[in-house]
Design a protein around this nucleic acid. Structure first.
Lengths: 112, 112
DNA sequence: TCCTTGTTTCGACGACTGTCGAGACAGAGG
DNA sequence: CCTCTGTCTCGACAGTCGTCGAAACAAGGA
């Protein structure tokens, strides 16, 4: 379902964002606009194999389990990560397409 | 000048963000994480000449002047735009370097 | 079966944010 | 000088967000 039309990647310099697209993109940026979530995403993205389990993420911060779980849920709702359970542990990995969408929007000089 | 230092543009896949850098980047993404601000930035970036005055931005939304001014202030504090007064009107333009920084962070496959 | 460990959901609290109206400041022109 | 227009600051209010403790759910092992 995530087939992206040409409009998905047009940069800011192209034409003004309409309200609907702005709302979707803002949801993603809002998820990124929190230091803990940004670090969580970076931890997952840079982890060996491209995925990390919650148990490895919790110890990095001085935060309780529920708080980490909450932030992971926000990142999941924004479409930035995806998690699946394998046995006891749940492993999270990034959604590259979604990140590319954000990166392209902010790229003022698209690859020509 | 199109080549940046290694630290400023290292993508998420490189190494985990430290708390300080995450805080600065999160400030910028938080500014982008609001539909009105995202549309304001897009209006400025896509405007003829690369700059737009507040009077042209206010009419687009069903919001009062103070509210638009507040959002512009947040974008300014995040380093995303810059405004200078010329006579009666104040013109805003984007800060390309800052946008490039964000775009590069989210780019999972940097130009190799 | 019960117990232990990993993860999420629920309910609550303080802090922050978006919005407004009223007023202040800046510049242009009588 | 005064006035008008454009923009910002201030103070206040409702709504949202990050955080926690307690409890629930899921899977594995005694």
């Amino acid at each position: 379902m995530s087939k992206q039309g040409p409009a998905c990647c047009s940069p800011l310099t192209g034409e003004p964002l309409d309200a609907e697209r702005a709302a979707d993109l803002a949801r993603m940026f809002k998820a990124l606009g929190e230091p803990v979530r940004l670090r969580l995403l970076s931890l997952i993205a840079s982890h060996e194999g491209g995925e990390a389990c919650v148990c490895e993420l919790t110890g990095v911060f001085d935060l309780t389990g529920p708080t980490i779980s909450h932030h992971l849920k926000v990142l999941r709702a924004a479409g930035l990560i995806r998690g699946d359970r394998r046995g006891t542990w749940i492993y999270y990995r990034v959604e590259p397409e979604r990140l590319r969408q954000a990166s392209a929007l902010l790229d003022l000089q698209p690859a020509s």
